[in-house]
Nucleic acid binder design. Sequence first.
RNA 1: CGGGGUAUAGCGUAGUUUGGUUAUCGCGCCUGGUUUGGGACCAGGAGGUCGUAGGUUCAAAUCCUGCUACCCCGACCA
Length: 489
Amino acid sequence: MINNNRDKNYSEWYNEIINKSGLAEFSGIRGFMVIKPYGYSLWEIIKYELDKILKNSGHKNIYFPILISKSVFSKEKEHNKFFSEGCAIVTHSKIKKYNNKSIIDSESKLKEELIVRPTSESIIWNTYKKWIQSYKDLPVLLNQWGNAVRWEMRTKLFIRTSEFLWQEGHTAHSSKNEAMIEVKKILNIYTDFLKDFMAIPVIRGIKPHIDKFHGSENTYCIEALMQDGKSLQIGTTHFLGQNFSKAFNVKFTNFNGKKEYIWSTSWGMSTRLIGGLIMSHSDDKGLIIPPKIAPIHIVIIPIYDNEEKKNFLIEKISKKLISILSINKLRVKYDDRKMFTPGWKFNEYEIKGIPIRISIGKNEIKEKKVEIFRRDTCNKIYHLLDSRLPKFIIELLNDIQKNIYKKALNRTMKSIIKIDCFNEFKNHINNFGGFILSHWDGTYETGKIIQKKTEATIRCIPFDYGKEEGKCIYSGKYSPQRVIFSKSY
RNA sequence: CGGGGUAUAGCGUAGUUUGGUUAUCGCGCCUGGUUUGGGACCAGGAGGUCGUAGGUUCAAAUCCUGCUACCCCGACCA
């Protein structure tokens, strides 16, 4: 049972879901998270599926060190300035005992401080310059799975933690056009991944310049709407232009024998995906996990009887069902622990968001059927214990996947609204949240004033909405198209 | 980083105002038994440097100070 109510206290509901489902907890060091077995198995599946897609699209994996020397880190000025505001710095290499206390050995001070990577552009571009000489070496399409550390002021499990796990792609291209294509291609890969695997609909767009990745020319993003009406930036891709190749002096010789700076991109999605997943789908009974990324698709719970004979039959039938489902590549768990009652187990797996639960007891044996519970709707279905059952379950999983997406899509689409009056805008954002399509004059100042007065920010200039000219909702000045406003995480 | 709040067994808590026996209760945990169709029941048991470091006092969970962590609000937020 989740005690907090989604509608009343969203933040505490979110924390309770994570705690009770066993996904993660804070570690005792501010902002750093322990990902527990169930949470990590979820991350492993997300990683496995996304990794497969990235490899299929021509990317290879690499691994760069977690530490970056201060001088390398400092070379690209804009990105350096920004990340310098909050990073972890390694300065010493030894600890010694002094008056029975552990203290840093000042003699072990490093000649040059090392930065725990907040992102890897600098070290990667410092290395790429050794790898790239000719147009024949291009494109470089690499991806890294790792962690990053950013000294965050205010943290929230999975949504913003001081250390997070992610993938960061870093590509090098011979032309601006090719780099632009890459940035948009990855954004579409992310969009499809969110839709097809995580069942999360997103809005694609470009970040206003005031909100782009520092060191990039442009940042593209996908934004997802959470159940409390706030937006979450769930993935980004950056067109870095020639900023990093110039900062690290990475040139290639083109077809005509002339030297040119390289065009580059970077892009990433992180453990924030899990936060978005929780806030998109879960309800007051716990997590709801789309089958495609569920660590367990089906849990089978035997309901025991007093009579040994019947128990034997229950187990025999359960095990047969498990083997059939496993052959169909379904992840099945059989929970025959006798120290927990069926009711206890039902609650447990509902909190954990397992898509399908099957109960088998004396009633099922008598009537040669099974009780099937689907987590997304909490409906119970009965199906005969026959050869059509595996197919039925596979189709049911597909249906659950679709239904979870449909629900999130309806919620998101229903929230999108065009507003042209500032008072109406203010009221709407406070009462309903959601995505608001309004005109903006494109200036930093107007964006800030609107944020101060409404708490809403410009999430993105969307690709798929609001392509008409108009007047800024606040200043009345010219606006080339509508942008997406919302409160956000 | 600023403002506010909190910290007592694995979790949730009483006790703190007004210092004074052996720190309260529930859940969980362990043992035995009966149970098992929506978080079972009975009996017995274990578990505490009261966040941490100091200070005041005959005496500190309780009063004072520093530190740390967590929660809420704000600032910040590829």
